[in-house]
Structures are given as structure tokens and as C-alpha cells.
Design a binder for these strands. Structure first.
Lengths: 333, 333
DNA sequence: ATGAAAGCGCTAACAA
DNA sequence: TTGTTAGCGCTTTCAT
């Protein structure tokens, strides 16, 4: 079923049908009605490839993220998809698995009109940014969310990473911790360095020494992480507090503590970034920092659509900060 | 940058360039090399809309799921995306939020060549299936995963819902429970009725009475669920075991127990479906049934690609069952 | 208010 | 082995 056939059945030209379906003012109300009725009857749908080719628009956006098995990106996709659905857009999803090579090949695939815009949360491995500069240079609307590249002048939607890092560390200090370990993501990641700066400043403000042996960079290999954490917790001078910069590291810590029969929070207090919805499932003694992932997704998508709709507008300066919240759990249970 | 321009720069015809890029045997190795080099130099990418229109193929599949904020669908998408990426396909994602109307409008959007195939896990609300019959009738390859419609003859990838329902219930009985509540999804959902049948048969086999007051249908509204669970746990004849047919209901239960100062597993034992990766975050006293979501996604996508690649093959009978596993937690801690 | 026709960028049948 | 050309289905300009 295509335009031509539909036009033939109605005994009018394809251009009239096309205009009628797109509610053009050139077409009489009567014809429009007739066309719409027939289209519905025959279950006609425009061919997105033909229309996309002609109009040079895809009505599609791409979301590039490191993982989806993650308390952050799940809700974020939810927010993105709901905005896209409301706007009549389609959402392509691509996972990098924290691999910059994949990120590059994915952005390469999106260069020739497949999408009208891109939302990206960069991989932890991303150092070189020429593939992203290329996207920008081709004038494909681009918005960063959560994991951003500060040096690239595109809109960014982030949480208050420095502040929450500060608050989290402060919370542990208030709870009596003196030797607080920070489980970091690779330094290249903006969120990691900001969270760490919050951590460092909180220590300083409380006159606690910074011990570089307590700042540990982990990655997404759980068994390697657990081995590292195991060593950390077996030290004679074991930390009494742990600040995990992502949920996975808290899970890893939790498992090692179980294995070593260390009690959270008696032996060691733990705080981590996590998502509100399942926070209650975390060991109740872990305080969590809840990121408004759904809202971030919605916000990032909204900005992207603004860019898509009115090109030329200067969005370079937009940098939306959405506040996360500390969710204290009953720490004495 | 398009074919024509590229051809002009090379001083050969567009068809030669097109064939060269697609590694046609009609083209000499020398020309191919020259073309590929120039294409790379000029960063040429085929226009997917033009090529899709001409070839009547989109190189894209759609995944329709109820939610993404979910321990099951996250890993499932991961599995799907990895297979798709390997095959050079793109993945569109659509969320129904358990709303059949949305499911219908989404399948409607996919009728005109936007995708080469569809993977779907139906919404809990889906009763009418004419929109899915329409997809099948238009010969768009379709595969169900996890939440299937038994009556529609298309390939299905499921877990052993009956068996795991049986095992889960048995586990609670073994643990000393005598009054076991079942927190069900709406009956329309195949997975729910199968899990319930397992539950019922386990009770029978252990000579325990079936109490219909203990079979409670919940939905995706957490506050309504919690209210229902609150009532359940306040009954004089409180259940001593709870079998939650999805993780969300276990979370809801957990929260109500905390509120009512009920101890899991002392006062009430809980078992639920969940995902291995975060199982350790669940209250350690909850035994979980781990579904191999990633594998299911991979399997479903593989079947879909088989259908896409060799049309006409009869896949109607394929019904892949992937076993879930019981993950007992230290229930005495 | 309606229609004819060009053309979006690509592929493939056919010609050379 | 390479080139010419028609046409995928749609939108849009320009006529009528």
C-alpha cells in the first residue's frame, strides 16, 4: 500500500493525496476528509524511507550509552523515550560497553542522515574526542548527559557531582569515619574527577589527611574490582568508610564484605550513587545518593529536540545541572 | 558527500562506485581499491534512506517492551543489541509502559518498512491481539520473548516459568512455610499463569490447601501494591511466606515489611524472580530466581535474524525454553 | 484547489 | 569490467 495506489483508488493525484495527508492548506476540507478516510480504511502508512530521503529528515534520534544494565541508564532511557514518543520520534539505542572503539564506529554509522540528533554518555575509556568533533562539525545536533566531555562546546545535562561527592564524604565523616576510601572511575571521566574533588574538599574541610592509597580506580570488571577491594579491606589499616563512585563498586564492596565477614556499617560504612527506585533493596545500612536519571533523560531529550527543531540557535552554553539527593538509610539497624 | 560526487571525483560512474563499495565480483580489484581509498578519504557513508528505499530493507529491528527500569529488560536489551551490532543491524526501542493502546500505536508505526523485524514482550494489559496478527499477516518477522501470547503461532523465547514457580514454592515449603501468598501479575500474562500453576501444583504436592485469599494480583503502581500488601500482612492470619512473581512486588513487600517492623525471613519468608547481577543487593534473606535475561535477548534476536535472512523458512514451531536458576541466599543471617 | 513532473541518493537490470 | 538508466515512494515546485 503506497501513495500511488491510494491515489488511484481515490481517483486523484498523488500530490493531492500527499498534501491532504499532511493537512496542507491548499487542499479542500472535503478532499482531506475523503483521503483520510480511505487512508485509514486501507491502513496506509507513509514509507519512512521515501519520506526521509525526500525531506532529509529521519524522525529518529540515537542514544549512545555505555551500559543498560545499570540503575542509571535504564530510567534515563525511559525519560528519553517518553519525550521522543510525544514528539513522534523514534529512538535508536547503541551500547558501547565502555569501549571507545565501539563508540567511534557507532558515531561513524550515524553520519549520513540516519538520525536527526544524538544523545550520548561517553564511555569511561573515551580520551580522544575527534569522532565527537566530527559529529558536531557535520552539524548533527548533539547533547551530552551524565558523562560529558567538558572541552566540547555542546549542551550538557549533568548532576551536581562535586556537591554530591562532598556531601557523601561529609556524611561518612559525620558518621565517625576517619579513613575513607574513594572507589573511582577512570580519571578521564568528568563525573569521576568531580566526585573525587568533592571527596577531597570534604576531607580538607574536616581536617582529615588525604591518603592516596585510599583512592582506588576501578573499572567494569567485577572480579578484578573485587580482588582490589579484597586487598584494600585486608590491610592492617583498613578503611572505616568507603565512598563508591558508582553503584557497581558498592555491589562489589558488598560482596567482598560478605565474604570477609565484615559488617556494614559496623566495621565499615559505605555510601554510593544509586537509583531511588531500588535503594531500599540495597543493604539498609548503605546510604545512597540518588540521581534523577529519568528527569535527566527527559531534559537531555528536550534540549536535543529544541536543537533539531530550530537549527542555528546557539545552545552552546546550556549546561543543565540537576540535583541529586542523599537518601540516608537506617544506619543502626 | 554522496555517491555521485564520489564518482565524479574518481571519474567513474556511480554504479561502478556502488558496486565497488559493495564488493561486487563484477568490479576489478584495482578499481575497488581506488574507490575504497577515496571513500575513506572523503569519509563517505551510504545514505541509509536511499539504500533502504531502493532495497526495501531497513537493516533495523524494533524491540517493544513494557519497561526498561527493570532487572529483566535491561540485560535482555543488552543481549539483543550485541547480536544486532554483530549483524550490522540497528535497534529501535519502544516502551509500552504496560499500556496496550501504546502497543497498538507502536506496532502501527512499524508497518511500513521501518524495520525488518520485531521483538516483543507484550504488556500486562494486552488482551486483544489483532495488532500483532496484523504484523504477522504483513509478514514482518516477529519473535516473542518472556511475555508471549501462546495462541499466536510465532517463535517464542521463554523461561521455564511453571518449573520455577514450582521450585520457588517448594523452597518456601521446605523452609517451613505453610501459608504462602502468591503476588501475581494480571492473569492475561502467560508468565503469570504459568508461575501460578507451578505454585498451585507445589502446594498440592505438599498437601497444603489452596487459599484464594492468598493469591493477589498486583500491577505496576507501587503505592497501590503496597497498600494491598499492607492489608495482607496485617491480617490476623498473616502469610508466613510470599512468592513474588516479579521483582517489583518483592521490593514493594520489602518496603512494607520494613514499615511494619516485620523481619524477613523470621516473620515472613520471601522469594522472587530477579536478576543475578544485583541479587546480592536484595536483602540477603530473600532467595531469588535468576532469569537468564541476557541469553534470552541473544536467543530471541538470533531467531529473528534467521527469519529475516531466510524468509519462507518455517519457524512457527520454535519455542525456546531457557532455564532459570534458584539462587538461595543465606537465609539465617 | 488540483495535478504534472522533477528529484532526494541509491541499486540493479541491462547495455556496451 | 564498466556505464546508462529506470525507479524505489515520497514531497514540492510550478503549472493549470
Amino acid at each position: 500500500m503506497n501513495l500511488k495506489e491510494l491515489a488511484r483508488k481515490l481517483n486523484i493525484s498523488t500530490s493531492t493525496v500527499s498534501k491532504a495527508l499532511r493537512d496542507s492548506h491548499e487542499i479542500s476540507e472535503a478532499t482531506k476528509k475523503r483521503v483520510r478516510a480511505k487512508a485509514k480504511e486501507l491502513n496506509y502508512q507513509v514509507n519512512p524511507f521515501a519520506s526521509g530521503l525526500r525531506k532529509q529528515k529521519s524522525k529518529t534520534i540515537a542514544v549512545i550509552i555505555p551500559e543498560v544494565v545499570n540503575e542509571f541508564f535504564g530510567p534515563a532511557i525511559n525519560g528519553i523515550e517518553s519525550v521522543a514518543q510525544a514528539k513522534g520520534y523514534h529512538v535508536l539505542i547503541y551500547l558501547t560497553h565502555e569501549d571507545m572503539k565501539k563508540e567511534i564506529s557507532i558515531t561513524g554509522l550515524l553520519q549520513n542522515g540516519r538520525v536527526d540528533g544524538i544523545l550520548i554518555s561517553v564511555s569511561a575509556q573515551t580520551r580522544n574526542i575527534s569522532h565527537l568533533e566530527e559529529v558536531k562539525q557535520k552539524e548533527i545536533p548533539l547533547v551530552f548527559f551524565d558523562r560529558v566531555i567538558d572541552s566540547l562546546p555542546v549542551p550538557k545535562v549533568i548532576t551536581d557531582d562535586y556537591e554530591s561527592g562532598f556531601k557523601a564524604t561529609n556524611h561518612l565523616i559525620q558518621g565517625g569515619c576517619r579513613r575513607i576510601a574513594f572507589l573511582a572511575l577512570p580519571r578521564t571521566l568528568s563525573i569521576s574527577s568531580k566526585r573525587m574533588n568533592g571527596y577531597l574538599d570534604a576531607l580538607k574541610k574536616n581536617n582529615l589527611p588525604v591518603d592516596s592509597n585510599l583512592i582506588i580506580t576501578l573499572n567494569h570488571d567485577s572480579s578484578a574490582n573485587k580482588e582490589t577491594i579484597r586487598k584494600l579491606l585486608k590491610r592492617k589499616n583498613r578503611p572505616d568508610g568507603i565512598f563508591a563512585s558508582i553503584e557497581l563498586f558498592a555491589i562489589n564492596t558488598y560482596e567482598v564484605c560478605e565474604e570477609l565477614k565484615l559488617n556494614i556499617p559496623i566495621d565499615v560504612k559505605v555510601i554510593c550513587f544509586s537509583n531511588l527506585k531500588t535503594a531500599s533493596l540495597l543493604n539498609p545500612s548503605m546510604t545512597t545518593i540518588s540521581q534523577p536519571a529519568y528527569e535527566m533523560g527527559k531534559e537531555a531529550a528536550s534540549i536535543l529536540f529544541k536543537m533539531i527543531e530550530k537549527k542555528g540557535h546557539n545552545f552552546l552554553l546550556e549546561r543543565t545541572v540537576i540535583n541529586s539527593t542523599l537518601v540516608p538509610r537506617n544506619s543502626t539497624k
